[in-house]
Design a protein around this nucleic acid. Structure first.
Length: 441
DNA sequence: ACTGATGGCATAGATAGGTT
DNA sequence: AACCTATCTATGCCATCAGT
C-alpha cells in the first residue's frame, strides 16, 4: 500500500515515542500503535538485531515483566518509563526512571513529525530497513500481515473521510470512542465498504474492516472475545455494528426502490383483479401531457402504460383528475380569496388579490397571472408552516413557492423541449402556457 | 438444514419548530 | 432561553422468506 504524503506533517494518531534499552544502548522507538508484535519488530529493526521472538522479555522501569496482555496498557500510560529488552539468561540492569512522569509526557507533547513510512505498518517498514526481516508464514505472521493490511485500510478511510481525523484524535486523547463517534466511524467504514464491494460485502471484507478497527484502535478490542472484533463483525453470527449498519443501508435502499416504484404500481397483492383487467381500464385518449410530464421524471412508470391514470381512477373514480381546475372558479376561488383577505397584508398578497379578484373597472392586471391562477397562488399563502419534524433546510416562503407551483411558458414553446429539460425536479407543478401570463386562451 | 436478505418492532437519540 | 413535542433516523434483536 502506498504511503500518503499528504499526512506527513500531522502528529498522527497512535504515534508514540518509547524509550527502549537493549544491551548498553538506549533508543527511542516510534510506535504507530501499542501492539507488542509491532513493538518488538520495531525494536529489532532499530537496534539492528535479529528478530528473535523466543526468549525475549520486556521489562518496565521497575523491572516488572511486560507481557502481551498488559503491553498496550503499559505503553499507553503516561508514566511508562524506559522499557528494557532482555534476552533470557542475560543479566540486565534496569534503568530507573525517576523522571518517568515528566519525560514520558513527551509522547503526548512532542509533535511527532511522521514520515511517509510511518503511515505504513511497522512490519512493512522493516522491509525497507537494512535488516531484511523475513516474515515467517506462521499463523502469527499471517495474522500480523492481515492486521497490518486491515489497519491501513481502515486508517486510510478515516484519513480520507471528513470527520475521520476527529475520530482518530478522540481515540488518541481518550483511548476510547463515544457511542456517537463509534457510529460515525462505522458509518464511514460501511459507506466505503459498500462503495467498493456493493451492498452485500463478503464475510472476508466485513471481517477485514472489523479487524482493522481493533488493530488501529486496540483499546476498542474486546478482550473477552475470540478475535477481539466480534462486536464490530462476527462472521459466525453475522452480527456486529458493521453488519447492522450494512443492513440498515440495505433496508433503506430497498425502501427507496419500493417508494419510487410502488407509487405507480397497482399493487400485486391488492384485490382488484389481474393486471390484464386493469390494462383494459386504461384509456389511451386520456394520456395527456401531464402524464408525459410525470413519466419523464419517473421513467419506470413507462414499464406499464397508464399506471398513474389507473391508480388515480381507481382511487377517485372517472373524471376526478380534472375536478380541481374544473371546479376551481366556481367552488374554491371565492373562498380562497375571502380567506386571504383576512391575512396580514403584504404587497405580494395585495397583488395577487388584485389579480384574482379585479375591481369592475380594471379589466386584467398586466404582466400578472390571470384571476384563476392568481387565486391558486393565493392558496400557498394560506397553507400553514410545515408540520413539525425534521425538514432539513427551512420551509420556502409563499413567494418562493410560486416558482415551484407554476411554470409559465409562452405559447409556441416546445413542450417536449421543456419536458426534456426536466432532470432533477421531483416536484409536480402546473405548467401554464399562453401568450402572456394574464391572458387566457 | 443452512445462509443471507429482508421485514417488523421496540427503543433511543437527534432535530425542527412551537410554547411558555 | 428553556422546555416541550412530534417526527425522523439509526440501532438491536428477532422472525420469516427464498435460494442453495
Amino acid at each position: 500500500m502506498a504511503p500518503r504524503p499528504a499526512l506527513t506533517l500531522l502528529p498522527r494518531h497512535g504515534n508514540m515515542l518509547l524509550k527502549v534499552r537493549l544491551g548498553d544502548s538506549q533508543k527511542f522507538i516510534k510506535l504507530a500503535e501499542p501492539n507488542l508484535t509491532d513493538f518488538l519488530n520495531a525494536v529489532f529493526a532499530k537496534f539492528g538485531v535479529p528478530p528473535v521472538r523466543e526468549g525475549v522479555t520486556i521489562l518496565d522501569s521497575s523491572g516488572t515483566e511486560v507481557d502481551e496482555e498488559v503491553f498496550e496498557d503499559i505503553v499507553s500510560s503516561p508514566s511508562v518509563g524506559v522499557l528494557t529488552i532482555k534476552y533470557d539468561g542475560e543479566p540486565v540492569s534496569v534503568v530507573p526512571s525517576p523522571d518517568s512522569a515528566s519525560t514520558e509526557s513527551s509522547s503526548d507533547t512532542i509533535p511527532v513529525v511522521t514520515t511517509p513510512e510511518s503511515c505504513r505498518s511497522p512490519s512493512l517498514d522493516l522491509s525497507d530497513s537494512q535488516e531484511t526481516i523475513i516474515i515467517s508464514d506462521t499463523p502469527a505472521g499471517k495474522r500480523q500481515r492481515l492486521d497490518s493490511e486491515s489497519k491501513q485500510c481502515v486508517e486510510s478511510i478515516l484519513a480520507r473521510k471528513p470527520g475521520g481525523d476527529r475520530i482518530m484524535n478522540e481515540y488518541n486523547r481518550t483511548k476510547s470512542l463515544t457511542d456517537e463517534s463509534r457510529r460515525k466511524m462505522v458509518n464511514m467504514l460501511v459507506a466505503d465498504m459498500t462503495e467498493k464491494n456493493g451492498s452485500s460485502p463478503t464475510r472476508q471484507v466485513k471481517e477485514m474492516y472489523a479487524r482493522g478497527i481493533v488493530t488501529l484502535f486496540p483499546s476498542l478490542s474486546d478482550p473477552f472475545s475470540k478475535n477481539g472484533y466480534e462486536h464490530y463483525y462476527d462472521s459466525q453470527s453475522g452480527s456486529g455494528y458493521l453488519a447492522w449498519r450494512i443492513k440498515t443501508i440495505q433496508r433503506s435502499t430497498a425502501r427507496d426502490r419500493r417508494a419510487s416504484f410502488e407509487e405507480g404500481r397497482p399493487g400485486k397483492t391488492t384485490e382488484g383483479g389481474p393486471t390484464a383487467r386493469r390494462e383494459l381500464q386504461y384509456l389511451p385518449e386520456k394520456n395527456l401531457s401531464e402524464d408525459d410530464n410525470v413519466l419523464s421524471e419517473f421513467p419506470r412508470f413507462k414499464d406499464v402504460k397508464g399506471l398513474i391514470e389507473q391508480d388515480f381512477v381507481l382511487m377517485f373514480g372517472e373524471g376526478a383528475s380534472g375536478k380541481l381546475l374544473e371546479r376551481w372558479p366556481t367552488t374554491f376561488k371565492k373562498k380562497v380569496i375571502q380567506q386571504c383577505r383576512k391575512l396580514p397584508s403584504t404587497s405580494e398578497i395585495e397583488e395577487l388579490l388584485l389579480a384574482a379578484d379585479p375591481p369592475e373597472d380594471v379589466t386584467e392586471v398586466d404582466a400578472g397571472w390571470d384571476s384563476d391562477l392568481s387565486s391558486i397562488l393565493l392558496l400557498s399563502h394560506l397553507i400553514p408552516p410545515t408540520a413539525q419534524g425534521r425538514k432539513k433546510p427551512g420551509k420556502v416562503s409563499a413567494t418562493q413557492a410560486e416558482k415551484h407551483l407554476v411554470v409559465f411558458k409562452k405559447t409556441g414553446t416546445s413542450i417536449q423541449e421543456h419536458l426534456d429539460e426536466i432532470t432533477t425536479s421531483n416536484q409536480p407543478y402546473l405548467l401554464a402556457v399562453g401568450v402572456r401570463r394574464g391572458f387566457r386562451d
